[in-house]
């Protein structure tokens, strides 16, 4: 288990390094930071001066290590528009994004779990299929479309809930429902598939042969096995969830990192964009690491390694 842990942590660090490298190339792709820092009328001399000040005249490899060092200190440069550190701009938006992401995650996973169990326990083929068709159908609706329909129904027509902003619990309901049900569809399909796989395993037959009933076998035997793939895949697909926050935040004007990134794009504020992307990726890597450790705790086969 410790070996597994150490290996996994090293792997995560390598991934973070990869993300940093990708960010470095993105920064380069964005164009000469010196030019971006100055107004359009700046002379060649001005540019050269700024280049020197920013250390852009040094060899690429030095700049690369410099970049890594800066990233590790959380220094992504200064926002081109607001004249404050890009990272601080991003950091103040993190709680909002986490609030939305975690609520949706718990909502989606929890509902998927309950519906998955219902699907296995109900004798009705109709109920099973109905749930599955709804899940598939929901997955085919993009987040922004679903969000707008929610706003139309609950804010415009019924006037029950606010359509934008963050603050009270009622602000959270629509965005969390929009993102959460999108996740629900994915997790439910996964959960159902892994339960279906487990149902065919020999140990299920053994459990029945002991005299156990269907519910006992489902909860006592199949569930612990079916949760394992669900946990991993849920971890991997967290990327979708975090990506989903970007769109959801835009639809509902939710003041999170995603919305900040989108706004910065229209303002061509590259340091903020890259700091935001980096931070979200970092969240993803960390959460995935936690998921994997959880997996190790659940599965004796991994624990032994």
């Amino acid at each position: 288990m410790t070996t597994f842990l150490i290996k996994r942590v090293l792997q995560s660090m390598l991934t973070v390094l990869g993300v940093i490298t990708a960010a470095f190339f993105l920064v380069r792709l964005a164009g000469d930071p010196a030019v971006l820092n100055l107004s359009a009328e700046a002379s060649g001399e001005d540019i050269a001066r700024v280049r020197e000040a920013l250390g852009l005249d040094r060899p690429m490899i030095i700049q690369y290590f410099d970049f890594i060092w800066n990233v590790l200190r959380g220094d992504f440069g200064v926002s081109l528009r607001q004249n404050v550190s890009a990272m601080s701009l991003v950091l103040e938006r993190v709680p909002a994004t986490l609030e939305l992401a975690l609520t949706s995650f718990v909502l989606g996973l929890g509902l998927a779990f309950i519906l998955g169990i219902i699907m296995r326990m109900t004798g009705s083929r109709f109920v099973r299929q109905l749930i599955m068709w709804i899940a598939l159908g929901r997955q085919a609706i993009p987040i922004f479309s679903f969000g707008l329909v929610m706003i139309l129904i609950f804010s415009v027509w019924l006037k029950w809930l606010p359509s934008l902003g963050r603050g009270t619990l009622s602000h959270l309901i629509l965005p969390a429902l929009t993102l959460g049900t999108y996740e629900l569809a994915l997790y439910l399909r996964l959960f159902n598939a892994s339960l279906a796989t487990e149902q065919r395993q020999d140990y299920v037959r053994t459990a029945y042969a002991k005299g156990q009933g269907k519910i006992q076998v489902l909860l006592g035997h199949m569930l612990p096995n079916a949760l394992l793939p669900l946990v991993t895949v849920a971890g991997i697909n967290l990327g979708l969830l975090l990506g989903g926050t970007v769109v959801t935040e835009t639809v509902f004007s939710w003041p999170g990192v995603g919305r900040l990134i989108v706004q910065s794009v229209s303002q061509r504020d590259f340091p903020v964009i890259i700091a935001g992307v980096f931070l979200i990726s970092l969240m993803f890597v960390v959460i995935n690491l936690i998921v994997d450790v959880l997996y190790g705790l659940l599965d004796p086969r991994v624990r032994m390694v």
Partner: peptide, 16 residues
């Protein structure tokens, strides 16, 4: 009545 199945590698639940 009770049964012993063929393949002991799969008849036991791996996580219990």
């Amino acid at each position: 009545m009770a049964i012993v199945f063929q393949d002991p590698m799969t008849t036991l639940n791996p996580v219990l």
